[in-house]
Simulated assay, not measured.
Amino acid sequence: MQLTVLGGCGAWPTAVQACSGYLVEYAGFRLLIDPGYATLPRLLNHSTVDAVNAVLISHGHPDHCADLNPLLRARGLSNEPPSALPVYAPHGAVDAVLALDKPSMLAEAYHLHEFTPGDRFAIGPFTTETWLLPHFVPNAGIRLTTPEAVLAYTGDTGPSPDVLCLAQGADLFLSEATYVHQVPTADAPYLLTARLAGQYAHQAGAARLMLTHLWPGTDPTLSQEAAAETFTHPLCIAAPGLITNLGDEVKTSTSVERNGTLHWNS
């Protein structure tokens, strides 16, 4: 299983960082998770739009799903439209995005599969388990399993014992870490810190930790240092172009750039 980060910025994109977006590939199947703001241009660095086999969305905030609209436009309005794109999302999560165009315009471009967080289902070669995790809107924590590896992704979440269930023994735990050490009081039930993400990864026995959804302007070094207080295995910050092959042994906790693409050190 290979994960390519398209973006990992929370709330809104910056000049150098798109919002949440991840391309997961296994056995020739390409699953796009959370196409947030500005992720489509990043996707086009790695794939054509018609090569995406399915989309999986954790929740309905636009920094996790806004670029579903241009993705469907690029497919549905092309000269030779591909078959309808399966889109998996919690009930109602993508209603606002799909309403950006009149219903008939993109009706043939997608096939919507709505689910309730807590459901388990297959997407191509992936066994998909979901958990309802606390956020401002219904959010699905996502665990993808293949015969070789497990990817666990929080979407956006606040503290919950279910995060440990989600991340248990994962080859890669992709965790929201909006703040470094402390979440503002009003938001504390709905978001995580990098420090707490590190604690969850340690307690769950995850092999690797990737921090994502950092608040714009956050120093990623501080987030990485906070997570490393409790998580001593490899960890890094989600950045566009970072490629992780789950199941590969990684001996260090840093990433390097080779040929313009970020990779874990090995």
Rank of each mutant, 00 (worst) to 15 (best):
L71G: 03
A107F: 02
M210H: 04
D248N: 14
T244C: 11
H181P: 00
L31A: 07
M210L: 15
F115R: 02
P134I: 09
L6I: 06
L68V: 08
V5S: 02
A238V: 01
A152S: 08
L112P: 00
A93K: 10
S20P: 01
S175R: 02
S83W: 00
G10A: 15
L71P: 00
A140G: 04
L43D: 00
D171S: 14
A201L: 09
L174I: 10
A238P: 01
D248C: 11
L3N: 04
T252L: 13
C165D: 13
L192T: 00
G60F: 11
R42Q: 15
D95L: 04
A186Q: 11
F29H: 06
Q224L: 14
P147Y: 04
A140E: 08
L31D: 10
P90I: 10
L242W: 07
Y88L: 11
G21W: 08
A122Q: 14
K102A: 15
L209P: 02
A188K: 10
L144W: 04
Q168A: 15
H64Y: 08
L144I: 04
V55H: 05
G7L: 07
D34N: 15
A149E: 09
E148F: 03
V16T: 13
A226N: 03
P184G: 10
G76C: 08
T130F: 11
L209S: 06
P103M: 05
A38M: 11
T261Q: 15
P70W: 02
Y179C: 13
V94T: 14
T261A: 13
V180C: 13
S175C: 15
A239G: 01
A194C: 14
F121Q: 06
F121Y: 02
R143H: 06
T128H: 03
L85M: 07
F173C: 05
V97F: 01
G28D: 13
S78Q: 10
W12H: 12
Y22C: 02
L68I: 07
A152L: 01
Q168F: 08
L43P: 00
P81H: 06
H263I: 12
L44G: 01
L132N: 12
D187T: 04
E80G: 00
C165N: 11
A107V: 02
A167F: 05
P82F: 09
V137F: 09
A238W: 00
F115Q: 07
